[in-house]
Amino acid sequence: MSTAVLIFCTVSYHLILISVAGYSGWFNPDTVATLVASLISIAIVLFTTFYKRGGAAFKVREIAGLRAVEDAIGRATEMARPVLYTPGWGGDIQRPTTIASMNILSHIAEKTADYDCRLVYPTHDPVIMAVAQEVVKESYARVGFPDRYRAEDVAYVSSSQFGYAAAVDGLITRLQPASIFLLGTFEAESLILAETGNSINAIQIAGTDSTIQLSFFIVACDYTLIGEEVFAASGYLSGDKSILASVKAQDIMKVLIALFVVVAVIWSTIEAISNVPLSEWWVF
């Protein structure tokens, strides 16, 4: 991976050279602010990932919804009912939230395999289905129960939003899962699924990057992961140092953004008070 860091450094160096020299139309000067912000962010992520992960373990604060994961699967096992996991209609495989959701799925699949509890995973996207099948299959194999894996339980149901919602609702009503995980990108189907889950008294753990749907999940589900908690969840559950390192990187970037906002506020306040137009380098 040091090759990746090396490539990054070389590319950054040349990008800066090109942007400074403005080489014959190769560089679009309008994107300079975005370039600087991107390079700083990438440098922070690479630094924490490759240099900090070797040190002491990062501490991630307790997330109630994740503490409840094991209980939820245990409950389903005791009641001899399945666990239902669905990533929502709004995402596709290139969406980071879907990838974060896959990490959580991997952890949950290990548990369901271990407890011999059925895991049902309906999705709206054929690529997500193919990846999820591999993730679940590998998790089952990792804990030593490859025979418990059922390929037909990880299924593509419909690409249409409400076709998907109706299919998942139907599964919830017929299978009566004891625990439901709604983790991924959700749109208007969120409350339809969560309320149906609520009506059968399932324990529901939800998490999404769709801000508007968070309010629905908070009302209808037992636990809700808010935005970035979905990304932190995979590190929290697996203890994977590289994921935890990127959570640390996010915190560093958040502090920088907060400082930047404070400076920008002071800057524009001075501008407003003094009535003298200052440089707008920070506007992009």
Binding site: M1, A4, F8, S41, I42, V45, L46, T49, R95, P96, T97, I99, A100, D209, T211, L214, I226, G227, E228, V230, F231, A232, S242, I243, S246, V247, A249, Q250, M253, K254, I257
Partner: peptide, 19 residues
């Protein structure tokens, strides 16, 4: 929340790109 999500997306994407 959006800033947090944006940063989470950025770090996840970078992890994917660098393997």
């Amino acid at each position: 929340i959006l800033i947090g999500i944006g940063l989470g997306s950025l770090t996840t994407s970078l992890r994917v790109i660098i393997g």
